[in-house]
Design a binder for these strands. Structure first.
Lengths: 200, 200
DNA sequence: GTTTAAATATGACTGCGGTCATGTAAGGTT
DNA sequence: AACCTTACATGACCGCAGTCATATTTAAAC
């Protein structure tokens, strides 16, 4: 690795570390780029060589967090339990991983939506969050059909999207609510419902 | 009505009208407050007597739109058809009302999420969108149970929230996707799924 | 009609995100 | 080692959202 590459990584990590600290100390909005660059001992312009906007930092945070979370998931999902429980465990685990840093999570999710607006993503190109989750659920459901735990003849893609929808909705409502109810129970209940159906 | 009140309404409408025109002409981001106030022939500071931020305009737009939409809905929902179809009609109607002005709709939804972040809404206080929709669905499902079209013993609140989740997810994915598929079919399919259930 | 009080209007000003022309240093070339 | 090229660093600068002290208009009080 060349000296240049080393310095680049160092600078990016420095920005990451400093901004993380400042965000925790005084919040995202109250932290200015000037502060970050002063603390990180770089010029203001340099910041924008690494992150195109202030908000891009949030996406970077989200990526780092996702890396960790999804690597944990993949080692957890080998277990041979009932498909419904597998899905419950997965979604509850994900939801609970947001419990720390509720404020920053909101901003991150928020930014993620905004981000999708700006970029013209081709289908299948977006590997993060929603789609990544849909893929895992898709696998689970496919196996569920084979095991006879999921109704045959179902459209697996639609089912995966529906479960994803339920999950995101629950997380959003939970994040934005004042009260402190159990996200696990909420999600579990809704998954039960989707498995059993509403119709008579 | 006093002269003051008249002028206030006039000014607010003028801002609304001018900004609407400019947003359509050149987009939200490319329109500055300076432009709006110049076109509306008011001082810059005056704008902020009517809207606390530029984004607040989007919420005002959304409100106006919702007023119209929900007034149409209430006259439509009297029909005595099967509960599932009633729900399908409702959600498809709502989704299709976003077909015009896809760009502005995105910004509005986006802003709505942001807005919820800032305000400490008490439960039941938020009469708009998500909760309003949940309430209507709640009613539909309640009647559905009575008519024997919805499975008895179901938690109506959870079911309403699940359907809302499916609806919002569909709209979001649709709004942010490049392709031009049928939102009606997508939502219909998912409602069928939720009614029939995933489990075997 | 005059005075007083309250509401509203206003634009110079501030603060911050983001740009860009210019400077500096790394690494390749001879 | 002297020179060149390319990548990266930098801070003065710009544009725009939002503020605030001051001015103006309306309404109330007498």
């Amino acid at each position: 690795m060349s000296l240049r590459e080393k310095k680049k990584i160092e600078t990016k990590n420095k920005i990451f570390e400093v901004s993380g600290r400042l965000f925790k100390e005084k919040g995202f909005e109250n932290t200015t780029i000037d502060e970050i660059t002063k603390e990180a001992e770089i010029g203001k312009g340099t910041f924008f060589n690494y992150f195109p906007t202030k908000e891009a930092l949030l996406l970077y945070f989200a990526e780092k967090k996702d890396e960790l979370t999804y690597s944990l998931i993949e080692s957890e999902t080998a277990k041979s339990i009932h498909t419904k429980d597998k899905i419950k465990n997965l979604l509850v685990f994900l939801a609970e991983s947001y419990e720390r840093d509720k404020e920053l999570t909101k901003l991150m999710i928020f930014e993620y939506i905004k981000y999708k607006r700006g970029t013209g993503l081709k289908f299948g190109e977006d590997q993060s969050r929603r789609n990544r989750l849909s893929r895992i659920l898709h696998d689970f459901l496919g196996n569920g059909v084979k095991k006879g735990e999921v109704r045959e003849g179902i459209d697996v893609k639609t089912a995966a999207e529906t479960l994803t929808a339920v999950y995101f909705q629950s997380v959003m409502v939970w994040l934005w609510s004042e009260s402190d109810y159990s996200i696990s129970e909420d999600i579990s209940g809704k998954i039960d419902l989707v498995f059993e159906g509403i119709g008579s």
